[in-house]
Simulated assay, not measured.
Amino acid sequence: MICNRPAPPLPHLYISEEITNDAATFIRNHINVLLRVSEDIALGRDSRMFVKVALSLLLISVIGSLTDFLTFIYTGLVTLLTVPALYERYEDHIDRYALTRYRYSQLLYVRFDAQFISKVQKWIVEKKKLS
């Protein structure tokens, strides 16, 4: 059975120039921040961020070598949907454990700093004095 009704009217869609300029400015600002951070990492000004990026890439590489893309996405989705519910249920236990681990890692960093980083800094200062 064929109806002879007219098609519903289509709305007139448009994007204003103001919205386009705002979106372009937003994207430009975020790209500039990313480039500034990348430059700091490349020039050695932000060594902590360099270590974070290197460890993140290493983790992604290890996970990527263990599985294919579809399994990785599926596992990520399941994790993304499960972890917040588990955290909400066991929030007190997780927070207590995380705080304990954080304090322990700070203690390890202080020991590492005292043993290695300060020695390297002294060595660099001595080399600069000799130059």
Rank of each mutant, 00 (worst) to 15 (best):
L66W: 01
E91L: 08
I73P: 00
I19A: 15
I2Q: 08
C3N: 10
I31G: 02
A114K: 14
L107M: 07
R5L: 06
L70E: 15
L10E: 11
N4A: 07
I124A: 13
L108N: 06
S65Y: 01
D22I: 05
N29L: 10
D40Y: 02
Y87P: 00
E17T: 13
Y109Q: 04
L107T: 02
G44Y: 00
G76C: 01
L57R: 07
Y104I: 09
E88S: 15
N21R: 15
K119W: 09
P9I: 13
T71N: 08
W123P: 00
D46Q: 13
L55M: 15
L107E: 03
P84H: 01
M49W: 00
S38A: 15
K119D: 14
T75V: 04
I41W: 01
I117W: 09
D113Y: 11
V53D: 00
Y104Q: 14
H30F: 15
M1E: 04
L81E: 05
P8N: 01
R36F: 05
V110C: 02
K122V: 07
V62H: 02
G64A: 09
D113S: 12
I63V: 12
L107A: 10
L80K: 12
W123H: 14
L66R: 04
S38Q: 12
P84S: 01
F72A: 01
L58M: 13
I15C: 14
F112C: 11
L80D: 10
A85L: 05
A114G: 10
V125W: 01
K52I: 10
K128R: 12
K119I: 07
V78I: 12
A98S: 03
A42R: 10
W123T: 09
E18Y: 07
N29Y: 04
D22L: 11
V83I: 05
K127N: 06
K128Y: 01
I117S: 15
L77K: 06
V120F: 15
Y87M: 11
L43N: 15
T82L: 06
K128D: 07
P8V: 00
L59T: 14
Y104A: 14
E88G: 15
L66K: 01
S56H: 08
T82C: 09
D95G: 07
N21Y: 08
P11F: 01
R89V: 06
I41E: 00
F26S: 05
T20L: 03
D113A: 12
A24Q: 12
M1D: 09
A98Q: 04
I117R: 11
L34G: 12
L130M: 14
W123K: 12
Y14E: 02
